[in-house]
């Protein structure tokens, strides 16, 4: 039995459909209910929906053998897990963005609003730029508009939210997509099951990568 943590929301649903197409379906999951844990003995899987930022915690602590988490969260929290596969879904990028047409001055401490302080620190340390991090939990885009920060570091998918708020990406930091992660101990004890799933994933995406 493989215990799989999936991120609640659109990405999780997309990822579940990949698992389903590979023979790891659990029909109950599509039912109209508010359950969070679903088991299918026949296919040897038990899924549970977790908050996206918690998936890696469930996997790191072995409650889930494997899970799917965005690269952004893996970079931010650095959980001690295996990152086995790039599912190539939930693609977006982490960018530095700010008010359209304006560029913050280089001679002052840069105020950066973000949900991702660790990624931000690491990026600007490489630039040798002095920054002040303003940790926010949502609606990051309003920070430069209200003068709370000079720039933001956030996930950009299509850029629509930025455009509609008169913002633009200044610099892309890294490409993001959903990754298959595994607990390091459980990978060893359930190696056959995990490797079988992994090779099915590799086969199904072979040739599809752009």
């Amino acid at each position: 039995m493989l215990n799989i943590a999936l991120p609640k929301g659109r990405l999780g649903e997309k990822v579940y459909s990949i698992f389903d197409s590979l023979g790891y379906g659990c029909p109950e999951i599509n039912g109209d209910n508010r359950k969070l844990i679903f088991r299918n003995e026949e296919n040897g899987v038990c899924y549970f929906w977790a908050k996206p930022s918690d998936v890696a915690i469930y996997v790191e602590r072995g409650v889930a053998d494997i899970g799917v988490a965005g690269k952004d969260l893996l970079l931010e929290y650095s959980p001690d897990v295996y990152e086995l596969f790039d599912l190539n879904v939930g693609k977006c990028r982490m960018s530095v963005a700010g008010i359209k047409g304006s560029r913050p001055a280089d001679d002052t401490t840069l105020r950066v609003a973000t949900k991702f302080p660790n990624i931000t620190k690491k990026y600007f340390r490489k630039q040798n730029r002095e920054i002040e991090i303003i940790k926010l939990n949502g609606s990051i885009e309003i920070a430069p508009l209200l003068g709370l920060s000079d720039v933001i570091v956030d996930i950009v998918e299509t850029g629509t939210t930025l455009r509609e708020n008169n913002l633009e990406p200044y610099k892309d930091i890294i490409d993001i997509s959903a990754r298959l992660i595994a607990n390091k101990a459980n990978y060893k004890f359930k190696n056959g099951e995990i490797e079988r799933l992994l090779s099915k994933m590799r086969e199904s995406t072979a040739g599809k990568e752009c």
């Binding site: 602590r61 072995g62 409650v63 001690d80 607990n183 390091k184 101990a185 060893k188 004890f189």
Partner: peptide
């Protein structure tokens, strides 16, 4: 080294 039911080495 790993033992069953403990998710860390």
């Amino acid at each position: 080294g790993f033992v069953d039911e403990i998710p860390f080495s």
